[in-house]
Design a protein around this nucleic acid. Structure first.
Length: 504
RNA sequence: GGGGGCGUAGCUCAGCUGGUAGAGCAAGUGACUCUUAAUCACUGGGUCCAGGGUUCGAAUCCCUGCGCCCCUACCA
């Protein structure tokens, strides 16, 4: 059989009503692509191909060997048709590579069928490596096959997909189009892998504790509720793994961590997604300072292995954050005195109020002073609005007021303070670390105080575990999404979560 | 929760005080054997987010709804 060149004008095996049988939405592009798909079939090219042995484009690029034969596969990102010699860019997620479809080098039918390829189609190609006069590493295609026909038109090649909503809702389009977005998610994956490797290297064991729980504990947040049909029982999704991990410490698993999801039934904004990834670490016979050591080891490790530098550009201002340890350690009260004066804690409340207002005015900051009636509350407002935001470089803020952290152990030398840190970077709290409360009597008091009237909320089994004796323990919880934001230099959580929660 | 903004072709975006809906990319046809945001010529392509209102006439003005973004508040 001799090959007949294909023309749309003479090709009519279908019509519009045929499409409407199986497609709810049709447009010019879809129709044209269905037509070229049918034409490819006519010519013996099955538009949805099979397994294709190939070499990753990054590897081909790395081991480029002029004249060698290679098999590669990927999505067509650009096509530059010039008649008898055509260029295309193939992208497989590891790299991009130029293909050359030359009439001299291809069987007649393959060269003709090339005209039926569209942007977004996935093809496999075999040919010889070649460097163009402009120095572009390329593959001269000797043979190709289509692996998947795309019916949808990909976004514009230059701007990519810019609409934020579309990028979140249809992440696959974002990933195939936007290199920076794709690279960020590969980085996220590496951050998680290196976190595991680091903790394993320090003797920690990864564990999994229940996400589906009968009562939520370990944090103060509204849980998502669900129903367990078999038991006809209300269940919740966990808001923190903490109470289960401490049970493991009681049981003798001395160094454990869990990397998993928490769910909090609260608002969505640029730093909150209702489901988010947390890392919690517990070390028996340790305390807050053991956790500081982990932070000071882990974050530089992630910088070295994933980012390639310990000086990270953060946010739109490209602020440089330096993760070379040691990080600054400073007591909460010292930070307050640094800003508000050495005598801050010895002057009357009225005078504190005046001083706070004056300081706020200097930086045009609004203090929320409604209901602020004590030095403690005022100081905390000052810390929140005037101090924390200015802690740009990595800082452990230690010795916090007991009232704000009821579940940690008090400082030995001052029962009004707790032996914890907040690790602050870029003016935001990245993670807390505790010397955990292991006194079951004190723990019950604190939980009862927190629960108020609603005694049902106390996890009696957890208290019971503490009554079996929990060694002194250091604990740490990191919001992994925020860590990834920091290390990849973006300031929206939706840019580091593959499928952020969106309203349906 | 409060305030502000946005929604127009497959994509990126124009569209003034209301008067027949525009460009670039992409697409179709043709030319072109070193292009790379290829180039050149011609051609096709719209539920202007949805619904209501004002008006002779609405993408444009008003109201309601939906979605997204920003600021702010809340948040172990």
């Amino acid at each position: 059989m001799t090959f007949q060149p294909f023309h749309f004008s003479t090709f009519q095996p279908f019509n519009l009503s045929t499409f409407q049988l199986f497609s709810m939405e049709t447009n010019e592009y879809r129709e044209q692509r269905l037509a070229s798909m049918a034409a490819l079939r006519e010519m013996g090219f099955e538009p949805y191909g099979a397994k294709y042995e190939h070499t990753d484009l990054a590897v081909v690029r790395e081991n480029f060997n002029e004249g060698a034969t290679e098999r590669i596969a990927g999505r067509l990102m650009t096509i530059r048709r010039m008649g008898k010699m055509n260029f295309a860019t193939l992208c497989d997620g590891t790299a991009k590579f130029q293909l050359i479809f030359k009439r001299d080098e291809l069987p007649e039918q393959s060269f003709a069928a090339f005209k039926l390829l569209n942007l977004g189609d996935i093809i496999g190609a075999e040919g010889t490596l070649f460097t163009t006069q402009k120095g572009e590493k390329s593959l001269i295609v000797k043979e190709w096959t289509i692996l998947a026909k795309a019916l949808e038109q990909p976004p514009e090649k230059f701007h990519g997909l810019a609409d934020q909503e579309e990028r979140y809702r249809r992440r696959y389009v974002d990933l195939m189009t936007n290199d920076d977005s794709r690279e960020r998610f590969f980085q996220r994956s590496r951050i998680i892998m290196e976190t595991r490797k680091y903790l394993w290297s320090k003797g920690f064991t990864e564990v999994e504790t229940p996400i589906l729980q009968s009562q939520a504990g370990g944090a103060a947040a509204k849980p998502f509720e669900t129903h367990f049909n078999a038991l006809d029982q209300k269940m919740v999704l966990r808001i923190a793994p903490e109470l289960y991990l401490k049970r493991l410490i009681v049981g003798g698993m001395n160094k454990v961590f869990e990397l998993g999801k928490d769910f909090r039934n609260e608002g969505i904004d640029r730093s909150h997604n209702p489901e988010f990834t947390v890392l919690e670490v517990y070390e028996a016979y340790g305390d807050r300072t053991s956790m500081e050591a982990i932070i000071e080891g882990l974050i530089p490790h992630l910088c070295d292995t994933v980012v390639g530098t310990r000086r990270i550009e953060y946010g739109e201002a490209k602020e440089i954050i330096d993760f070379n340890p040691p990080f600054r350690r400073v007591a909460y009260n010292d930070l307050v005195k640094e800003l508000m004066g050495e005598d801050w804690y010895s002057i009357p409340f009225a005078e504190q109020l005046e001083r706070a207002k004056a300081k706020a005015a200097e930086t045009e900051t609004n203090l929320e002073l409604d209901g602020v009636e004590t030095t403690l509350m005022l100081t905390h407002e000052v810390y929140d609005k005037l101090i924390e935001k200015n802690l740009r470089q990595p800082t452990f803020v230690t010795r916090l007021p007991h009232e704000f952290v009821p579940l940690a152990k008090a400082c030995k030398d001052d029962p009004s303070l707790v032996d914890v840190f907040e690790f602050v970077v870029g003016g935001r709290e990245l993670c807390p670390g505790y010397t955990e409360q292991n006194d079951p009597i004190e723990q019950r008091k604190a939980l009862e105080h927190q629960a108020g009237e609603d005694t049902e909320k106390i996890d009696e089994d957890f208290i019971s575990a503490l009554e079996c004796g929990m060694p002194p323990t250091g604990g740490l919880g990191i919001g992994v999404d925020r860590l990834v934001m920091l290390l990849t230099g973006v300031d929206g959580i939706r840019d580091v979560v593959l499928f952020p929660q969106m309203k349906s």
